[in-house]
Amino acid sequence: MLKGLFEHRSLIYQLAVRDLKIRYRKPILSFFWMLIIPISTAFIYKVLFSDFMRVSNGSYPFFIHLLTALLPWTYFASSLQTATLSILSSKNIINQISFPKYLLPVSVVAANLINFLPTLLVLSGFFVVFHIKIGWLIFLLPAVILIHTALITGLSFAVSALQVIHRDIEYVVQILLTALFFLTPGVYTLDQLTERASPLFVKIYMLNPLVGILNLYRVVFIGQYIGNMPEEINLINILVVPVLFSISALFMGYYIFHKLETKFSDYLNI
């Protein structure tokens, strides 16, 4: 598969660029929207949770806490949402041209990745504004993005193929995304969770790969984060769980996709 991906890189690029162009060609602010949306969302959440509800965390501004969660989250959520419909919406291409179909969800993820990377630059800009040191671990950022992307790609394979067969998947994905959003430490902090929830829940909670990945982003970005981490975070749930999850998601997703691929032509036209 990796060989196939490399071989078809120009097609993936074309498809990804198509997605982005369709998304940003017409609006006047075009490309800037992908920066404006997460930042403004972060701002809203900051006003709501930090200023009104007095959620706070000690060592670094809450706004940065929100932004480090929201940017990777947007990448995750919007990839999955668009990927779910990626096969279905390209049925005219699939039925008429012979090309590897798995490239469609891959290109969606690629488009969202291209979307995501510049936002990280803006994030670094905010670090300068808030006078926060970016840690030396920042050179591990590509690895973190790789783990994250692998997870997204695997899930995208699964949902895009399943959506063709069962058109309910789209809505299931929506609900799961909402649930997952509140199951990751974005709008609140880990300390607050551990204070209030039962220890068993916290243990299960920490096995959520997204929690691990989010923490990884914070570890590599925020200089002092690694020193002041909540004690629930350990090597297993921050690194091992996400890596294992990503790899197995990738293989399982591809397997599901491969299994269902032959049925597409039957189901696409009904």
Binding site: S10, L11, Q14, R18, K21, I22, I93, Q96, F99
Partner: peptide, 24 residues
């Protein structure tokens, strides 16, 4: 089918690249 995957909002040039890459 001619021009599978053509995008109306793209120029002819962009469509050539898109369609040709789809064709392999």
């Amino acid at each position: 089918t001619l021009g599978a995957g053509f995008q109306d909002e793209f120029t002819g040039r962009e469509n050539i690249y898109l369609n040709a890459s789809l064709l392999g």
